[in-house]
Design a protein around this nucleic acid. Structure first.
Lengths: 191, 191
DNA sequence: TGAGCAGACTAACAAGTGTTAGTTTTTATA
DNA sequence: TATAAAAACTAACACTTGTTAGTCTGCTCA
């Protein structure tokens, strides 16, 4: 239906405001003002503030889960898989920068639905760890604590939404390549 | 004065609640309940909700600024300085886990004081970049985009507050050493 | 042209917000 | 044990919150 457009506009605008101040600090009147309408009018398109948050977060979380499963089941080396995970984050974050902020900062405000989100996140991290462990087994990856490896990589990748909008000049492929270089090879020149 | 104790207790409790739900979603009645008192009684000790946030954030931000200045002005190699920065983050985050959450997530709710916070943060990042650039000049560090190096390291270090409380078994020194290894040497075993 | 409808509006609600004023209880010390 | 300070209380305030009900406007198409 064509009216979906308006609903999607509201959700996109909400994501932008949520990024700036967080879900709780954004009022329906703030959102309405940003949309150029009155708060009550929003309810012609959406059912509740909660629904907006749910749509933003769950759709992206599912995108990540699907993405990493494809990567895990491919026939590449473990290090290549990790590079592909990096590229996955860069791509999704580039396309959905504001939404990524809600995913990271506001998932705990999903009333009744945060269990589902946490399940998705736990599955994602479990697959991530499997890739690392297989890389250690095959001697591609140093035998460092795999949780610390994942933590380091995921911290960086989950923070991309803070950084990408400031660096519009940087090419997406370059960014993914630079991150792979740093995260996988390190920064030590070892002369 | 001895009464400071009570005020500090309130601030510590507030930091814990702020970490769980964010500044905006925590009400003075929530805080009072967690303290075992009524909301109005909080005002015998603190002036406002804002004041609590300000104390939490500004004191830690100043600790970081002072810490990195000492490291920058020391006579170590650039890579050693970076290791010390990592240890600084691990130490402060271990001692002030909940407060770090506010620093990262709620600084934008500092009404009228966020400019000062941003100044501190910009100074911190400028010094960080200087360390990296000097390391590149002296051929200790690979000539990768220094902003991306800083972003990678800071993302990881700023996320430590999410991770440290789950890993109480891990020794603080071990964690700092592992992070230095991964962030500086990379994870590639390069057989 | 006129019926229907998407989408805006105004007005209002009940509940929750940070905070204040004034009062009572608890604690410590002289 | 009396006194004063510290710290709790009750009651209330003005304002903001998400949301609902009901209405008006303007476009689409039979």
């Amino acid at each position: 239906m064509m009216q979906q457009t308006r609903k999607e506009e509201i959700i996109k605008t909400a994501a932008k405001l949520f990024k700036e101040k967080g879900y709780s600090a954004v009022t329906m009147r703030d959102l309405a003002t940003a949309m150029g309408m009155k708060a009550a009018s929003l309810y012609n398109h959406i059912n509740s503030k909660q629904e907006i948050l749910k749509i933003i977060i769950i759709s992206i979380a599912e995108e990540f889960t699907k993405g990493i499963d494809v990567i895990y089941n491919s026939n590449n080396s473990s290090l290549d898989k990790l590079s592909q995970v990096i590229a996955l984050h860069v791509k999704i974050t580039t396309n959905s920068t504001n939404e990524m902020a809600s995913l990271n900062n506001d998932w705990m405000h999903l009333e009744g639905q945060s269990d589902y989100y946490l399940t998705l996140r736990n599955n994602y991290e479990a697959t991530f760890i499997k890739i690392i462990n297989e890389g250690i087994s095959s001697s591609e990856i140093k035998p460092v604590n795999p949780e610390i490896i994942m933590f380091t990589m995921l911290s960086t990748l989950r923070s991309l939404f803070l950084w990408i909008p400031k660096k519009e000049d940087i090419n997406v492929n370059d960014l993914a390549n630079n991150l792979s270089e740093i995260l996988i090879q390190g920064i030590n020149k070892k002369l």
